[in-house]
Amino acid sequence: MKLQHYLGGLEGLGRINFEKRVFVQPWEKRIFGIHVAMMALSQHLETAKVTPTKFKSVWTWANLRKLAEGMNPFDYFKYRYYEKWLGGISSFFIESGYVSTIELDAKTEIFLEKSNTSLPHNSKPEIDAQVIEYLRVGDSPKCNADIKPKFSVGDIVTIKNPLPTEHCKLPGYLRNKKGVVDVVYEGVYNYPLQTGDGVGDPMPIYSIKFDSHEIWGNLTEPKTWIYADIYEAYIENPI
C-alpha cells in the first residue's frame, strides 16, 4: 500500500493549520505559474502543438500526481505543498533533458548570491496567448463514446481493492466498502494517462454515498455521510 493513497482517515494528526493564504512565500507563485504553463503547452492539446514553444512533452495533473505519489511517504509530509511541486517539476525538466542538473545548480548559486539578478528577456506573444487561452477553455475529460453505465441510481455497490499503482484515483479508505449509487453522471470521461488499475479509457463516473459509521466504525459523530466521485473501473456488484 501507498500512504499517499490512504491519507483520508489517518488518525493522530492534531490540529489543522487554518492558513487562509494561497501562497505563503512569494516564490510559490512562480512554480504555480510554471505548472500552469506546462499544462497549457502540453503536447496532447491541438492548440499547443502549433504554439512556438520548445516544450515537447505531455504534462497534466496526472503527471504531477504520479510524482507526488512516487515520493517517499515520510518525505511527502516533510515538504510544504509548493516545495513538492518545485522538487517534482525540476526533476521532470532534468529527467526529460530540457535542463541539466549542472546548469540548474549553477543558476541557483547565482540567484542565491545576488537575489536581485533579473530574469532573461524572451518574448513570444503566441506562447502567452496559448497559456491564457488554455485557462479560459480548459481541457475537459468528457468524451463522446457510446458506453452505457453498468450501475443505476439506488444500486448497492462494492468498491474494488485493486493493486497499488504509480497513480491511483481511488481513495484508500473506500476500498472494499459498500455504498449506494447517488448520481450517475451524464456522459463518459477519460483520464490523461492509463493508471494501470483500470482508469484511462472513457468510462462513466458515479457519485457514491457512504455511511461514515460503516466506513470508520469508531465514529461518534451522528448523521454524517460521505459522497465520493468514483470511476466505474473501481466499482463492482456487491460480493
Binding site: Q25, P26, W27, K29, R30, I31, G33, I34, A37, L41, P52, T53, K54, F55, E83, L86, I89, S90, F93, Y98, V99, E103, L104, K107, T108, E109, I110, F111, L112, S115, T117, L119, P120, H121, N122, S123, K124, P125, I127, D128, V131
Partner: peptide, 23 residues
C-alpha cells in the same frame, strides 16, 4: 527555494519553453 525557482524559470525562458511574461 526562491533561488531554485528563479533558476528554473530563467532556464525555461532561455530555452524558449516559456517567455519572460508567462508566469
Amino acid at each position: 527555494n526562491a533561488a531554485r525557482i528563479k533558476a528554473l524559470e530563467s532556464l525555461l525562458i532561455e530555452k524558449g519553453i516559456i517567455t519572460s511574461e508567462t508566469v
